[in-house]
Design a protein around this nucleic acid. Structure first.
Lengths: 358, 358
DNA sequence: TTGTAAGCGTTATCAC
DNA sequence: GTGATAACGCTTACAA
């Protein structure tokens, strides 16, 4: 029986991995032609292309990334620098963001180069990436209100897309952000519409740009309804479950405790519910709760649609954001002359059980 | 004023990055000598070494990873393939594991190459890593009860360390595991000692090796105390908060509901508490709870020590595990002839508020 | 349409 | 102790 492909896969003998030189010798072609055929250059004839491709597949040829990178200056890798906050806290949002991003990368044949570093050391890493040409671009995570990384990346000429945004010159670089101001304004308005006037904001760290925007939205809604802002009702910290718990306990111990709580993330919101339960209070009946929801995968219901979600939330998929940011970055790497891309996503309000049913 | 270092840092002009050739020309040395000096070869004189190192620092010279990799065959990158389960669920344990691992990698000058893939596609990725020499080694996450990846990695000769273990020939490869059997046996025994006889196990997916070991420990404790195992009290699934909630509701709806619950992770345990609260029950008073706790960073109290933790738990740091696994892998890459390393860590029982105080 | 040859920036093998 | 020089495995002008 004649095999349609003369070059059989040889799983068994790992031996010396095949390289372009061997492959071209076997085919009786030059390395150039083989390389061109494999990389889809138009000038190579269809006949040879097929022959080359078959041989490559059959012999399980894989070009060496190091060699290709050395020759082209491209690494086909994207750098993600994840900040580790004090207490060695690592924000669980990143894994979902990366899951989304990796989908786009995989489709384009890119890898993620991951580096975790204490917040503040990111800049050194970007410099390192740039000078060693370790990656083709980076994603900027968690932009601060004052964000030196953006100017740095511009100056060292490393392509980047910001998840979020910062500064006033937001049209000079690419970013994708959720309309946090609008989201929290609407969320607050919903609570006001339901009769609440004492509303607490359990915010994220306000050194983060997104947290500041959320606070601005919150305060804008209060102001629009002539409710005096009360700083006692606002707190901010790293968005852990424990923080949500403790903040809720503290809020409800105030003299005129809030009747509604807004949380910056579902993790502190869960802590808040835990606190309410300890105090014998019910979320949605005794105290209203709205939380921002990044749709973290490990907190989703498997069945999704058919049940009313527990939390009333302002919701936007962080996985989807990750995917889109990755696409934007790849597009920019592909054509470095293209002008910056900006996308502002609107979050969606989802009616749950922690506010009055309407 | 004379600068002690003649080669000033030039942040401003990015220009053409300096390479070994230029550096050696500037120094009036051969590339060989400069390379040797920078890589700490013993034969180069102390005088030149210092001179070279200063020039390299001053001119901000960074060797090209691609070129070095091409020349040495080493990439100084470790592959981590993170499975994405159905429903696009990405297990939040990984980010903490990676945070620990990255500490060891950073110290050794290694990077993480991250790839996320639907469970089952890992093998193709390992093959790709190996044939393209993309990484120097990989960490195997979440070994299944039947785990083809281990044999594959052996056969393609890619260094690896398993977080967990699988199969019967566990002395033929390197792994680090928590003594899950012992942990759950002790946890169960604690509940039995407190008078419980109807104990439920809200387990992880039992296609996972660790979940099977936990169940075995659970059942061993029951058997040792002559308590008949009741399969209605055991359930297993991906360890989400929602799963813990729903499983708890289901368990307590049984005819003879359990009086104690054991959870495989703190996420479902939190869901369990939420369910108890909905049912008007208190964890630790009406129903006892013990959970396994990986000490996920985003669920830790910031102040730690001074308060009694909420959950009674069987606890082991997944960040510490990540760090140690990385160290083991690097050691193995360093000396490929060394025999496999095996470490079995004992988890620690932590008294909290969800069991009787003793 | 295909081939020759010169890089890409290191490390490694020899000599000296 | 230091220096030529040849790999490493690819891409890419430039020729043919």
């Amino acid at each position: 029986m004649i095999n349609s492909n003369r070059f059989e896969k040889s799983e068994t003998m790992a031996s010396a991995p095949i390289n372009l030189k061997k492959l071209s010798e076997i085919l009786g072609l030059s390395q150039t032609t083989v390389s061109r055929a494999l990389n889809g250059f138009p000038e190579v004839s269809e006949k040879t292309r097929v022959r080359v491709q078959q041989a490559a597949d059959g012999l399980n040829y894989r070009p060496s990334p190091s060699a290709a990178s050395l020759a082209t200056g491209k690494t086909r890798a994207i750098g993600h620098v994840i900040p580790i906050s004090e207490h060695r806290m690592i924000n669980p949002h990143f894994s979902d963001f990366l899951a989304g991003a990796s989908e786009a990368y995989a489709a384009a044949g890119y890898d993620i180069l991951l580096r975790m570093a204490p917040a503040g050391e990111e800049e050194d890493i970007y410099r390192d990436f740039a000078s060693r040409r370790r990656v083709d671009g980076v994603v900027v995570h968690g932009p601060k209100t004052v964000e030196p990384r953006i100017d740095l990346l511009k100056s060292i000429n490393l392509p980047f897309v910001v998840h979020g945004r910062s500064g006033s010159d937001t049209d000079t670089y690419s970013w994708l952000d959720v309309n946090n101001l609008n989201a929290f304004q609407q969320g607050t308005q919903l609570l006001i519409d339901q009769g609440h006037t004492r509303i607490a904001l359990v915010n994220g760290l306000e050194s983060m740009n997104f947290a500041l925007r959320r606070r601005a939205g919150f305060e804008a809604a209060l102001e629009a309804n002539n409710i005096a802002a009360d700083s006692r009702y606002i707190c901010s910290a790293d968005m852990t479950e424990t923080y949500g718990h403790d903040a809720t306990v503290a809020q409800l111990a105030l003299k005129n405790p809030p009747t509604a709580l807004m949380f910056a993330s579902i993790l502190p919101a869960m802590g808040g519910v835990r606190a309410l339960n300890e105090l014998g209070l019910r979320a949605g009946k005794d105290v209203a709760i709205i939380t921002y929801d990044d749709q973290l995968s490990f907190l989703q219901s498997p069945d999704g649609e058919n049940t009313t979600p527990f939390f009333t939330s302002i919701s936007s998929s962080i996985q989807a954001a990750g995917k889109r940011v990755a696409e934007m970055l790849l597009a920019q790497i592909d054509d470095s002359s293209r002008s910056p891309l900006n996308e502002l996503w609107e979050a969606e309000i989802v009616q749950g059980q922690t506010t009055k049913q309407t």
